[in-house]
Amino acid sequence: NRRVIAMPSVRKYAREKGVDIRLVQGTGKNGRVLKEDIDAWLAG
């Protein structure tokens, strides 16, 4: 149960899109989840 590193704005964006942020692979520094990662996850 790893802790997800993401800015609050990215967490909010994921919530609005209905994405469980824990399932998204972060590509930022130290595995940080970026807004682009959410978009990529939604695109498949």
Rank of each mutant, 00 (worst) to 15 (best):
I5E: 07
W41L: 06
N30T: 08
K35P: 05
Y13M: 04
M7P: 11
K17Q: 13
R2E: 14
V10M: 03
L42M: 12
R2Q: 13
V4L: 07
R32A: 11
K29F: 12
V10W: 02
V33P: 02
K29I: 11
L34Q: 09
D37C: 01
Y13I: 04
G18E: 08
R3L: 11
G44Q: 14
L42A: 08
R22P: 02
E16D: 12
M7W: 15
R2I: 15
A14H: 00
Q25K: 14
A40Q: 13
V19T: 03
Y13R: 03
P8R: 15
V10T: 07
R15F: 12
I5C: 08
K35A: 08
L23F: 12
T27L: 04
L42I: 14
G44I: 13
G31E: 06
A43W: 12
Q25D: 12
R15L: 11
Q25P: 14
G31Q: 09
G44R: 15
A6M: 03
G28L: 03
M7K: 15
Y13L: 05
K35C: 06
V24K: 01
R32N: 06
I5H: 05
I21Y: 05
R32Y: 08
K29P: 11
G31F: 09
G31A: 08
L23E: 10
R3W: 04
G26V: 03
D20K: 06
M7A: 15
K12A: 09
G28W: 02
D20L: 07
P8V: 08
K29T: 11
D37V: 00
G26Y: 03
G31H: 09
L34N: 09
W41T: 05
S9K: 15
V4F: 04
A6W: 02
G18R: 11
K35T: 08
E16Y: 13
K17S: 10
L42K: 07
R3T: 13
G44T: 14
I38A: 01
R2T: 15
R2K: 15
G18M: 11
E16C: 09
L23Q: 13
R22C: 10
K29A: 11
E36L: 15
A6S: 05
A6K: 02
D37H: 02
K35E: 07
Q25C: 11
G31K: 07
P8G: 09
A40S: 12
G26F: 03
R22K: 09
T27V: 03
K12W: 09
V4Q: 06
A43G: 11
T27S: 13
D20F: 06
I21E: 02
A40Y: 12
V33Q: 02
V10C: 05
R15Y: 10
E16L: 14
A6G: 03
L42D: 05
R22N: 11
V19A: 05
I21A: 03
G28A: 06
W41P: 01
N30H: 13
L23P: 02
I38S: 00
K35N: 06
K17N: 12
G28I: 03
S9V: 10
A14R: 00
L42C: 08
A6R: 02
R32P: 01
V19I: 10
T27N: 07
P8F: 05
A14G: 04
W41S: 04
R22H: 11
D20S: 07
G28K: 03
R11D: 02
V4W: 03
K35H: 08
G18T: 05
P8I: 10
E36Y: 13
R2M: 10
W41G: 02
R3M: 06
R3D: 15
Y13G: 01
V10S: 03
L42V: 11
K17M: 14
I38Y: 00
E36P: 12
L42R: 08
I5S: 07
G18I: 04
A6T: 05
K35L: 10
R2Y: 04
K35G: 04
G26N: 03
P8N: 10
K29S: 10
A43P: 06
V24W: 02
V4N: 05
N30I: 07
G18F: 09
L34M: 12
V4I: 11
R11K: 09
Q25N: 13
L34T: 10
R32I: 06
V10H: 02
V19Y: 01
K17T: 09
N30W: 13
T27Q: 06
V24D: 00
P8M: 09
I21S: 02
L23T: 10
V33H: 01
Y13H: 07
G31I: 02
G26P: 10
I21G: 01
K29R: 13
R3P: 15
T27P: 02
A43T: 13
V33W: 01
G44K: 14
E16N: 11
A43L: 13
R3S: 09
I5A: 05
A40G: 10
V33S: 01
R11M: 07
G31V: 02
A14E: 00
L42W: 07
R15M: 10
A6Q: 03
N30V: 07
G31T: 04
R11I: 07
E36K: 15
R11E: 04
N1Y: 03
P8W: 08
D20P: 09
D20G: 03
G44C: 08
E16P: 00
L23H: 10
I38R: 00
L42P: 04
K17I: 08
V24Y: 01
N1H: 11
V4M: 04
M7F: 15
Q25H: 13
K12C: 10
G18N: 12
G18Q: 10
I21R: 01
I38P: 00
A14C: 06
E36T: 15
S9E: 11
G26C: 03
A40V: 12
I38W: 00
I21K: 00
R15Q: 09
I5M: 04
G26D: 02
G31W: 06
D39G: 04
K29M: 11
N30L: 13
E36R: 15
E36S: 15
G26T: 04
V10N: 02
I38V: 13
A14D: 00
I21H: 03
S9T: 09
L34I: 11
A43N: 12
Y13E: 03
Q25L: 14
L34R: 10
A40K: 13
I38E: 00
I5G: 04
E16T: 12
V33T: 07
A40D: 11
N30F: 14
I38D: 00
D37T: 01
